[in-house]
Design a protein around this nucleic acid. Sequence first.
RNA 1: GGGCCGUUAGCUCAGUCAGGUAGAGCAGCUGACUCUUAAUCAGUUGGCCGGAGGUUCAAAUCCUUCACGGCCCA
Length: 486
Amino acid sequence: MEPVQELMKVRIRKMEELKSFGIEPYPQRAWECQTTEKIKELYGNMEEEELKESSPSVRCAGRIVSFRDFGKSVFFHILDRKGKIQIYARKDVLESPEYELFKKFDIGDIIGVEGTLFKTKTKELTILARNIVLLAKSLRPLPEKWHGLKDIEERHRKRYLDLIVNEKIRDVFVKRSRIVNFIRLYLTERDFLEVETPMMHLIPGGADAKPFMTHHNALDLDLYLRIAPELYLKRLIVGGMERVFEINRNFRNEGISVKHNPEFTMLEFYQAYATYEDLMRLLEDLITRLVMEIHNGTKINFKGSVIDFSPPWQRYKMEEALEVIGGLNVREESLENLQKLARDLGMEDVNGASRGKLLTKIFEALCEEKLINPTFVTHYPVDVSPLAKRSKEDPDIVERFELYIGGMEIANGFNELNDPFDQKERFINQAARKGQDYPIDEDYIMALEYGMPPTAGCGVGIDRLVMVLTDSPSIREVILFPLLRP
RNA sequence: GGGCCGUUAGCUCAGUCAGGUAGAGCAGCUGACUCUUAAUCAGUUGGCCGGAGGUUCAAAUCCUUCACGGCCCA
């Protein structure tokens, strides 16, 4: 028998014993109570004497996470969604269950507690238990109380244990929810309409990535999980919705890394009659306020360095960034030199690549990880931006920005290409590069032919933003159940 | 896909360089203890050393290979 089963056997034996005394291990019973946080909020500031006089009665529930046994009394902590509170069970005070039966309870058990509050001599607010009810028996031993669960693989595979044992991880996901809520509120207050567009696409579009395939049986139809919602959201702009956003999953069938999970969460928002300049200002405002909301300040720590969100944020044209940060004067570099440089940086098939593609690749290799403070990079080459509008001054450049924070690409926005002729031509060129059978979204072209108002749109990688705001080194730390090999 | 590192008790880790009876702390179990909080004190159970091959009188340790993970590169 495996040793863990011996530990379980002990717990099962205790469970049987409790049952024989009429204590159900898995009752379906409601236990109305306050959170530990609420109890601390209401009574935490009261003096010992004051508490002693009023001795307020409270009820709470949670999981037993520690147990200090003194024979005829026990101190232990329970953990609920808001935190921990100490409970004190004494043989001469506990009414039910019988004290000896209560001592059969284990760390990990989920219980309800009813009792009166007092403060220990170390001033810790504690519940002197009168009634304790078993709400669910725990049969497996929890990870160690002091070191917790450290093994990264185990933490991701058994996220429930990670959440029980590692307070910081609970906090990451609380913050993640607050971040998404904040963004949602910010946009809806500005009259953006939240929408949901298809996850299953006939033609994968809106980004340059390999899709996951699936199949609809009744229609006998191959479908793709979306790589981006962009083309559908812009159809809604054509439809007159004017301001829309969607926060949802995208799926990209590519490598997994510290910055990439095959399914990830993206915010995309589109605003008619706005320009990408407007959206840079909006993003700067949104994220600065978000940082203030989460951190009560504009400076935060991320991976050992300090990120300062105080506006205005640095802006570079891509060529400037290459020069200032990468130390490369691109105007003077020949195509051959750029190809050689790209090849040295590990880029494959440099010979077929355009100047714009090479520059973008070199920019990403030389500059990206050095852009720690929020930085907008603008003036992207047209051939890496098939859905963005060309610059009036230079048709090889598009009116586009990317936002970098903490050495990662966080957002990408541009003036939307609404010229159906230019769009069709770019789709055709893209298809030619991708090879035969690469589908063109004719319906999207048709939508543009009906007329799309001048619009700016932007995508924000929510997972990466959460990484930055929670100082998490890996995207897997901000996704509850990241993809793992079985 | 490539390189490096890791996988030992439920958990956290020693032990691997230099082969010679598999260790500690916590958790568990038995006791003692009615203000502890990593409680304390005494005793104690628990191992397919990731899997499979190989070398050797002898393998957690050396070699090969596979699986899973981490970091870096693509």
